[in-house]
């Protein structure tokens, strides 16, 4: 019964909860730092987003300006543990988009820096690209986000606080409904 696999995959097991906690905090920290590094360089973000040459010019600015704030918000939500499953799913979605964008840039032979942890964009003519490492890193983060969406119930999360009074409320609120 209490095999390692059982402990790791059962949401209520301490081992599963601990791992979920670690993944959540790590992912939250990554988002927070990634967003913070970019938020003060809107020009750089513009260039990074434009350099991928995927979005039409009209969308470049909205995306470039809002993404760092979204990343910081996701980071904060994950760190405090609020709506973990939703934020993990959104994270996974964003990583999937990033991976697709970098892969497409690599396939088209663009020489750009992904701008993942800074404002990247076009590289100087002799600078090396790091597509492989960027793809590997984002894929790992995608796996982390997916695992977290699967088992969002870690320790030290606001979700757990919200979870507790649920049954009390259903009991007491019912009286109100009887009127």
């Amino acid at each position: 019964m209490n095999t390692i696999a059982y402990r790791l995959t059962t949401p209520t097991q301490p081992a599963s909860r601990s791992i979920s906690t670690v993944l959540r905090l790590a992912l939250g920290a990554v988002w927070f730092v990634a967003g913070l590094l970019k938020v003060n360089d809107p020009d750089g973000m513009l260039r990074s987003v434009r350099a991928f040459r995927i979005l039409p010019e009209a969308l470049v600015q909205p995306v470039a300006y809002s993404v760092p704030f979204l990343e910081i918000a996701l980071g904060v939500l994950l760190i405090v543990g609020l709506a973990v499953r939703v934020t993990a799913l959104l994270s996974a979605l964003m990583f999937a988009v990033y991976i697709a964008a970098i892969a497409s840039a690599a396939a088209r032979g663009l020489r750009i820096d992904c701008g993942c942890f800074s404002s990247g964009g076009d590289l100087t003519a002799d600078a090396p690209t790091h597509y492989t490492s960027e793809l590997v890193r984002d894929s790992l983060l995608l796996v982390v986000a997916t695992l977290l969406a699967w088992r969002p119930g870690g320790y030290l999360a606001v979700d757990r606080l919200l979870d507790q009074p649920v049954n009390d409320r259903s009991g007491s609120d019912a009286d109100g409904l009887e009127l």
Binding site: V39, P42, M45, Q61, P62, A64, Y65, S66, V67, P68, F69, L70, I72, A73, L74, L77, L82, A83, R85, V86, T87, L90, D159, L162
Partner: peptide, 21 residues
């Protein structure tokens, strides 16, 4: 909670856009 979080994220994005703009 999920709905509120998603709405908050959208608002954060819009505010971010306005700030940078």
């Amino acid at each position: 909670v999920a709905g509120v979080v998603v709405v908050v994220l959208i608002i954060v994005g819009v505010i971010g856009f306005a700030v940078q703009n």
